[in-house]
């Protein structure tokens, strides 16, 4: 579904992605973790070309992103993206946030789009917030609306870029629950997160990054029980018991 082969990317002289080989199969849930600045956000943002790559091959859903002939706008419609900062449209109601793209891109009638949006809001537990504006919602609610917005395009792949990092602790659970539900539907998920509970329980595989490289890939139980790479050991120690 997603295949990186020898992918490189630089920000100026900073080598943010260094020879990445990485594959995600259809229906898999892969968690990408690593210290901040390790390149994990950049990695996930290249999958829908919010960041272009400079070298290597990146094929998503059978389409080559390094080929200038690829219609990136159409590909993006097949890929849902959830941001750390939610990025809901503040001037539109919850319902309009969700129905905008289906109406403009999928040419759905307003009625059909709204029915579909209500079903999605039901699923993320926010049906009663259909007419609320983003500023009236809590962080956790905003993120759930953002997930519904992404799902409204019926994507084949969902990408999550630290979806719970900007949330108050008591709101993290409600967002993770929605994501867990998605993983069980067989959708392809790539999740950048520090939520090791989610990684352990829901993911098929954990990818550990640092210095722009993938240092380790393993099944969750294996990664937590016996991390091989020195940096992965330090990272796990740091994140599982920050006080030591």
């Amino acid at each position: 579904m997603i295949r990186f082969q020898g992918v490189h990317k630089w920000f100026g002289t900073l080598h943010v992605l260094n020879d990445i080989d990485f594959t995600v199969k259809q229906g898999e849930t892969v968690v990408v973790c690593g210290p901040s600045g390790s390149g994990k956000s950049t990695l996930i943002r290249t999958i829908n070309k919010l960041e272009p790559i400079q070298k290597g091959t990146l094929v998503v859903d059978g389409r080559d992103l390094s080929d200038p002939g690829t219609d990136i706008t159409r590909l993006r419609a097949e890929i849902g993206f959830v941001f750390q900062q939610f990025n809901l449209y503040p001037h539109l109601s919850t319902l309009r946030n969700i129905t905008l793209a289906p109406i403009k891109i999928r040419r759905l009638s307003r009625k059909d789009a709204e029915e579909q949006a209500m079903a999605l809001l039901e699923r993320v537990g926010l049906a009663e917030k259909r007419d609320a504006y983003p500023a009236q919602l809590s962080g956790g609610q905003q993120q759930r609306v953002a997930i519904a917005r992404a799902l409204a395009m019926k994507p084949r792949i969902m990408l999550f870029d630290e979806p719970t990092s900007a949330l108050d602790p008591e709101m993290i659970g409600e967002v993770l629950q929605v994501m867990k539900g998605l993983a069980h539907t067989g959708m392809t998920l790539v999740v950048v997160t520090h939520e090791m509970g989610f990684a352990r329980e829901v993911s098929d595989r954990i990818t550990f990054m640092d210095y722009g490289k993938i240092l380790e890939e393993a099944k969750p139980e294996e990664f937590f029980r016996n991390p091989r790479h020195e940096r992965a050991k330090e990272f796990l120690k740091e994140i599982l018991s920050p006080m030591h």
Binding site: R76, E78, F81, Q85, H91, I105, A152, M153
Partner: peptide, 26 residues
Amino acid sequence: PRGQMEAALSTGLGHNQAMLYIILPQ
């Protein structure tokens, strides 16, 4: 904020549509 354009592009809107429906109204 940049995130607005990124969010709009991510849902499959083109650059001009994102300008028209998301960026300019704000």
